[in-house]
């Protein structure tokens, strides 16, 4: 583990340094993913750009006029303690917080860092997919917002320009009678790479699913994505176990391609995806109508 470190004065300075030294310079926030990557020899950066000094500016959770903004350097602990997890519509973040890493990792790991990993095991990418989140980027040519699905272009691949840094994640507060749920299955509760994870955002009207967003750690790519076919099938379906389960069992296998690896077989992952999707949709739906 050999590298030099650059301590930027501000965000612009950090971007300029990263731009000048691309691809040899890599930003470090919490380091909970980056340090193990470097130790494993999977990444050999010449420079790390330490973002910890920018925390004052980029750590916030604001909810204003129906829009949620989460600063990139907000730690998972800060996110878990924010007003967001207390809102009925965002109970999914409470689910996510509970199974994210472990108590110590959550105090270092950041929201922007989790998005920046661009891996299927990044729980927040799954959740942000269900919320149609946009990611704020800031670089030497100014700042812009991109859809999370556009940014996370492939495994460990972000569709961004050299020097661009993730500054925040933005999403809307869902309409009334909506809520979220997040479920991750692994071999134990903490410090795991999930076998399968799912996030659901459900809007209910008169006991029927009016709208649903269903995101998984993987659907047909090696990064988190949405199950659009299944979503379409679920619209107008009554919020009942058999009805929801039936639609998911019918549609999900048509759009989901699961790979086998040493953790689990593709067939098992598909089966678990169906079960977890049903539970997530029903949980989010019940929460949406105030039934916890």
């Amino acid at each position: 583990m050999l590298f030099d470190i650059y301590i930027p004065r501000d965000l612009v300075d950090a971007s300029e340094f990263l731009y000048r030294n691309a691809p040899d310079a890599v930003p470090i926030a919490g380091g909970t993913d980056l340090i193990p990557m470097i130790r494993d020899g999977k990444l050999r950066p010449k420079y790390l750009v330490d973002l910890s000094g920018l925390k004052g500016r980029l750590s916030y959770v604001s909810i204003d006029s129906g829009v949620v903004r989460v600063g990139a350097l907000t730690t998972i602990n800060a996110l878990g303690a924010s007003a967001l997890t207390g809102m009925e519509a965002f109970l999914g973040f409470r689910d996510l917080y509970r199974t994210f890493g472990n108590a110590a990792v959550r105090s270092l790991a950041t929201v922007g860092g989790n998005v920046g990993t661009a891996v299927s095991a990044a729980d927040l990418i799954v959740m942000f997919n269900a919320l149609d989140a946009k990611v704020g980027l800031s670089g030497v040519k100014g700042s812009r917002y991109v859809d999370i699905r556009e940014l996370v272009a492939g495994k460990r691949l972000l569709a961004k320009e050299p020097g661009e840094l993730i500054t925040e994640v933005v999403f809307n507060v869902p309409p009334k009678n909506s809520s979220t749920a997040f479920i991750k299955l692994g071999y134990r509760e903490g410090t795991i790479i999930g076998l399968t994870s799912v996030a659901a955002l459900v809007t209910v009207r008169d006991g029927v699913i009016e709208d649903v967003k269903l995101a998984f750690d993987r659907v047909d790519r090696r990064v988190p994505g949405r199950a659009y076919l299944t979503e379409k099938g679920l619209k107008g379906v009554p919020l009942r176990d058999e009805a929801v389960g039936g639609v998911i069992n019918e549609h999900l296998p048509r759009e989901m391609r699961r790979k086998s690896d040493y953790r689990a077989s593709g067939a098992y992952r598909l089966h678990v995806s169906k079960v977890l999707a049903r539970r997530a949709v029903l949980t989010a739906g019940r929460r949406a109508v105030g039934g916890g």
């Binding site: 909970t32 790390l48 330490d50």
Partner: peptide, 12 residues
């Protein structure tokens, strides 16, 4: 904050 000191650089 509870921190794993193996993941934090001293500079940080």
């Amino acid at each position: 904050e509870l921190v794993p000191s193996c993941l934090m650089l001293t500079v940080q």
